[in-house]
Design a protein around this nucleic acid. Structure first.
Lengths: 326, 326
DNA sequence: CTGTTAGCGCCTTCAC
DNA sequence: GTGAAGGCGCTAACAG
């Protein structure tokens, strides 16, 4: 079934069918009716490969995420996809979480589909990849960060500020013996280092930090606490690089009979909607992933409509939620 | 940058470039080298829209999932995508979790990309959608179920058997006062009803069942237990339609000071890798989502290679894990 | 092993 | 408001 078949059935020229489907307002009422009816009768499904080739527009947005399972970005991606779908765009998810080599292959394959735009949630691992992205000449939004040297647009927050907020808040509550359990990922490290730096500025000399291999798992969180205690550290509060790590800490603490937050307070980090029920006394820094997805979609769609509009840079902020009674 | 540019640089004809890239084995060593070098120099990225249009093969697999955030299918999708990527296919995720109307539009849009195959994880909501899928004439795999009237291939397990296994196991442990908290989703209902039916066969007359609106959330799980208790039920064990619901039950039980599993035992259901750390005494029926993804990919890839191979129907089974000490 | 020819299904441009 | 011609970038089929 092609446009031509539909045109024959409708008794108009192929181009009129195309217009009736893509720019209904530019076609007469009667022509549009005939075409729509013919589409219904024939069960015609427009071929977007052909359409994209001819128009040089794919109506496709590529979304890069480190992983999809238990991802801190899940809400963002869901919301982003919803908003893009509503605007008539489709999304293609690329999983970057593995080797840098695989990431480059993936980028090549995705770029081959000629997406109209690209969203990055995690970070691209190689400079080469960043260059190819730039070379593609399409709008790019980096989400979940507000780092230096943006490729194009950014929608996110400052990981340094998160770390500072955590340090100040916990210090203000009177804690003096800290520990950090962090995944070895660039943004997680930004937050963790910022916590340590700020604590030092407040006079806390030593802040033991356990570094775990990415990706974060509950299991690695458990191990983090184990090693901390084995090494002889006795923190009053553990700052985690993510809620997943925090969950591991909580599980390990439970199995050791440690009272939360009395004997050990825990601070997590993650998406607003995912952490709420992990533990009644788990404090967290929350980010609204859904909103970030929406803002990302808006930034992209605006640029897609108006190529010359100024590049967006949105600070979505974050919220420190204290659930500790102490 | 087009194939023709590369051909000029390499000093061969366009078709040789095409072949060097797509079927390297049918091209001479020297030609291949020249082409690869020219590709490197030019930074050429093949246009898959054009390629797909010409060859009538998109190297694209569509994956339909109800939702991506906190999804029971996350591991399956991740694994599936990994395996498809390794085989040179890209995946396009469609989110079906909302209105039936939206689902039909989505299906139309996705079919417009001419995917080479389709994977369904959740169920399609309308008959119309099923028909369009059949009409597309491409391989379809339904995952996470082994229901009657398969569209094409199936990789999954029997939800009825899950229900029966749960009922028999808990009855065998001596429980006599049951309750079910289930989400209102076709497969969840299959499991929950099967539990109730089997319990009745074992002589348990009344099994109160709380039905919650989909999608399952931790919050709805909490409410399920609240309503159960408010209604005067005092179950020894609550069977949940998913781990997410179970998590809600656990949270609510904790806030009421109910001992798990002494005062209230809980049975969940879900993916192997996600439930492990929710609660030390949470029993579950586990399904290996990663393996299901792999088997799904294999079924699809095999069919894609050999169009005439017999349609696959794989029972992946499930595992009942009892973590209760009682 | 390599090249030529033709066309995939649609949209752009320009004319009416 | 509608149509005719041409081409988007690539590959199938056939020829050499």
């Amino acid at each position: 079934m092609t446009l031509i078949d539909v045109a024959k059935v409708a008794g108009v020229s192929p181009i009129t069918v195309s217009r009736a489907l893509n720019r209904p307002d530019v076609v007469s009422e009667s022509a549009r009716k005939k075409v729509l009816e013919a589409v219904r009768v024939t069960g015609y499904v427009p071929n977007m490969l052909a359409g994209g080739l001819a128009s040089n527009k794919s109506r496709l947005i590529a979304i890069f995420v480190p992983t999809i399972a238990h991802s801190i970005f899940a809400e963002t991606v869901q919301s982003l996809m919803d908003h893009l779908t509503a605007a008539g765009y489709q999304s293609m998810i690329g999983l970057t979480g593995y080797s840098a080599e695989q990431e480059e292959r993936l980028l090549g394959a995705v770029l081959g589909r000629r997406p109209d735009g690209i969203v990055l949630t995690g970070t691209l691992h190689t400079e080469q990849s960043r260059l190819r992205l730039q070379a593609a000449g399409i709008p790019v939004v980096e989400a979940w960060d507000l780092g230096a040297a943006p490729i194009d647009m950014q929608v996110g927050f400052s990981h340094e500020q998160v770390g500072q907020a955590i340090a100040k808040h916990l210090y203000g509550k009177g804690y003096r013996r800290f520990a950090i359990v962090s995944v070895d990922d660039s943004r997680a490290l930004k937050r963790s280092r910022s916590v340590a730096t700020q604590l030092q500025a407040l006079g806390i000399e030593t802040v033991p930090m356990m570094l775990l291999a990415a990706p974060a798992t509950v299991q690695s969180g458990r191990e983090g606490l184990c090693r901390l205690l084995t090494d002889g550290h006795r923190p009053q509060v553990v700052v985690c690089s993510s809620d997943t790590v925090a969950q591991g800490i909580l599980a390990e603490a439970a199995s050791r009979g440690l009272e939360i937050p009395g004997q050990l307070a825990v601070m997590g980090f993650g998406d607003l909607s995912s952490a709420a029920h992990l533990h009644p006394a788990l404090s967290t820094v929350n980010v609204d992933g859904g909103r970030m997805g929406e803002l990302t979609a808006n930034a992209l769609l605006q640029r897609l409509r108006d190529d010359e509009c100024k590049p967006v840079r949105v600070d979505t902020g974050f919220t420190l939620v204290d659930r500790q009674t102490t």
